[in-house]
């Protein structure tokens, strides 16, 4: 029955979903924009889940990592615009820079805040995005509050054709790969000591310590992993897709709210949850914006309270519980 690949079966529904999304977007006229949005939500949820879902800690300043990732790409493109011969290499450097900046910020925040327990951690993070935004604006870093626009540089580096294809198609496909990669990493973590340690500390941090788990180490691991993915999401979905960056936009708490809704709705700490949450959220937001414009957040705030009170394990959490020890169960974790 058991074979060496069976631990990886749960990735199957994830990949199938991504592939289906891609096919729909490419083949059904006029759906790519919606698909691109859904891919962004999938990647955002998948990345956030590695921290919120696996540790049970909530980071209200999570969007800051997308923000610095966007800046990472922006800095690479504007800084290296004089070396157009590097071409796509500059984009690669941008991703590296995005990861480095998100890692640095998450290490700094994590080193302070992850020593703190639950509520105090949440309080410490609530101002991270605003704090960083005000640092950029206040100290006039990277053009301060005027932001950076780098469409011209992107055109110069990649040539007009490639640049426009990057903006309209490749950026979104990159986001798809980031989301899928985040899912793979999530599963690898789940199956390794890291996953066991995170489950233990999420359920009972003191007991976990006594069991020999260095909780700070594992929390920071999850935090930095999650933040790096967020950084690449920012670099691809924001900087490459729309080559400009303004501090108030990329540090907008709104995106943290969306990430929370996606993860909680789908099922915090499950592999498939963020994807399911992203699809439910993205599609319903799309239709709400057509039929009931302006009330999406109102409805989702109600939904999130409802989910927390009635089924905190989320959609996939419930399915996972119901299908445990069945044939379908081995695909859903």
């Amino acid at each position: 029955m058991k074979n060496r690949l069976s631990p990886y079966y749960p990735l199957l529904p994830v990949f199938v979903a991504y592939f289906a999304l891609f096919l729909v977007g490419r083949n059904v006229e006029g759906t790519w924009q919606l698909v691109a949005t859904l891919l962004f939500y999938c990647a955002l949820g998948q990345a956030f889940n590695i921290f919120l879902g696996m540790t049970g800690y909530v980071d209200f300043g999570y969007v800051a990592f997308l923000g610095v990732g966007t800046y990472g790409m922006a800095i690479a493109i504007t800084g290296l615009a004089n070396f157009p011969q590097l071409g796509l290499g500059i984009v690669a450097i941008g991703f590296v820079l995005a990861i480095i900046m998100a890692t640095l910020l998450s290490t700094a925040v994590g080193a302070v805040a992850l020593r703190l327990r639950g509520a105090y951690f949440a309080i410490a993070t609530i101002g991270v995005n605003e704090g960083f935004r005000f640092l950029i604006e206040g100290a006039n870093l990277w053009n301060g509050s005027s932001g950076m626009i780098f469409t011209a540089q992107l055109n110069e580096i990649l040539g007009r054709d490639l640049a426009s294809r990057v903006m309209t198609l490749w950026a979104d496909i990159l986001v798809l790969f980031i989301g899928a990669l985040a899912a793979v990493v999530t599963l690898l973590y789940m199956k390794s000591k890291i996953g066991y340690a995170l489950t233990a500390l999420r359920e009972d941090e003191d007991a976990a310590k006594v069991m020999g788990i260095n909780v700070t180490k594992y929390k920071i691991t999850a935090f930095i992993t999650s933040a790096s993915f967020a950084g690449t999401v920012g670099a691809a979905a924001w900087a490459l897709k729309t080559p400009y960056v303004f501090p108030p936009e990329v540090f907008e708490i709104h995106y943290t709210i969306e990430a929370i809704i996606i993860v909680m709705l789908g099922g915090a700490g499950t592999l498939l949850g963020p994807l399911v949450g992203a699809l439910i959220y993205g599609v319903s937001k799309y239709y709400l914006s057509i039929f009931l414009p302006g009330v999406q957040l109102f409805i989702f705030a109600l939904v999130i309270i409802f989910v927390i009170v009635t089924f905190p394990e989320g959609v996939v959490g419930v399915i996972k519980r119901k299908t445990r020890n069945t044939a379908i169960g081995q695909y859903i974790i």
Binding site: V58, G118, A119, A122, I260, A268, I305
Partner: peptide
Amino acid sequence: PELATLLA
């Protein structure tokens, strides 16, 4: 868990 009241 604390997460619940924070999110609520």
